Simulated scan of single mutants.
Amino acid sequence: MENIGFRIIPRSQYPDLELIAQFQNVVTPHLSDNMNRIFASCSQLRPYHSGKKLVGSALTVKTRPGDNLMIHKAIEMALPGEVIVVDGDGDLTNSLIGEIMTRLAEKQGVAGFVLNGAIRDSGAIASRDFPVYARGVTHRGPYKDGPGEINVPVSIGGMIVNPGDIIVGDEDGLVAIPVQYAGLLLDKARQTQQIEDGIIETLEQGGSINRDWIDQFLQQKGCSLDDEDARK
């Protein structure tokens, strides 16, 4: 009989490491812009490691706040290239992981952690490049009682993550990409990069960019324009 709320769901898909690797050179702003800026976690989730980019396939965990029993299980069952994505309800009362768990996960081939909750041993985590994103820090340790679920949809600071989604994290934040849209978003993000590279190159060479759209848009909004003396 199903024990809803305390169970492990079998994987429905496995990490495509070749596909995942293609996101190493794509930044989160370009991915976010091409998903209309609504598929991202809240700004409170931030990186606590020394800067390495996070790219991998989501192994999701839903746990009771302050309890990491199912996170330990996720480390044991994780495949190389997976990101352990934990919904701890955003609670900061108790930490969910610390230095030892990050080292165990790294040894297992885990690509990193995303935690809608707290960590501890933040100094040790900050000294290493193993990716860890979290909502906060506390010295108070976790419990190991359960319940929890593995391989279920989770909410990470407003971002819905399904098992197998591609997670990309950098200094600007996190995005989750459904695998079925990965190729499309890769192409769109690369096009955005080319456009921005062209703008930057033009500016660096002393050229100018057409900015007429600003006044045109303001006029459409009914804004009264009286800035003739602004540059004199």
Rank of each mutant, 00 (worst) to 15 (best):
Asp121Ile: 04
Thr63Pro: 01
Ile97Leu: 05
Thr63Ala: 03
Ala118Thr: 08
Asn36Gly: 14
Val175Arg: 00
Pro15Cys: 06
Gly81Thr: 00
Pro131Cys: 00
Thr138Met: 09
Val83Gln: 03
Leu225Asn: 05
Asp67Cys: 02
Val161Ala: 02
Phe113His: 02
Pro65Ile: 03
Ile75Tyr: 04
Ala58Trp: 06
Pro163Ala: 08
Ser127Cys: 04
Pro153Ser: 08
Asp215Ala: 06
Asn210Trp: 03
Leu104Arg: 15
Glu228Val: 13
His49Asp: 10
Arg46Tyr: 10
Gly158Cys: 01
Ile100Leu: 12
Ser122Cys: 06
Arg190Trp: 11
Asn151Glu: 04
Arg128Cys: 07
Ser224Pro: 06
Pro65Glu: 05
Lys144Gly: 13
Lys188His: 15
Gly206Asn: 10
Arg103Asp: 03
Gln180Val: 09
Ala126Thr: 08
Thr93Arg: 15
Lys221Ala: 14
Pro29Asn: 07
Ile199Cys: 10
Pro147Trp: 04
Cys42Pro: 11
Asp165Thr: 06
Tyr14Gln: 09
Ala189Glu: 04
Ile167Gly: 06
Val110Phe: 02
Met1Phe: 14
Asp91Met: 14
Phe6Gly: 03
Pro131Leu: 00
Leu184Val: 12
Val137Asn: 13
Gly169Gln: 07
Asp227Ala: 13
Ala189Lys: 05
Ala134Glu: 12
His49Thr: 08
Pro10Glu: 02
Arg120Phe: 08
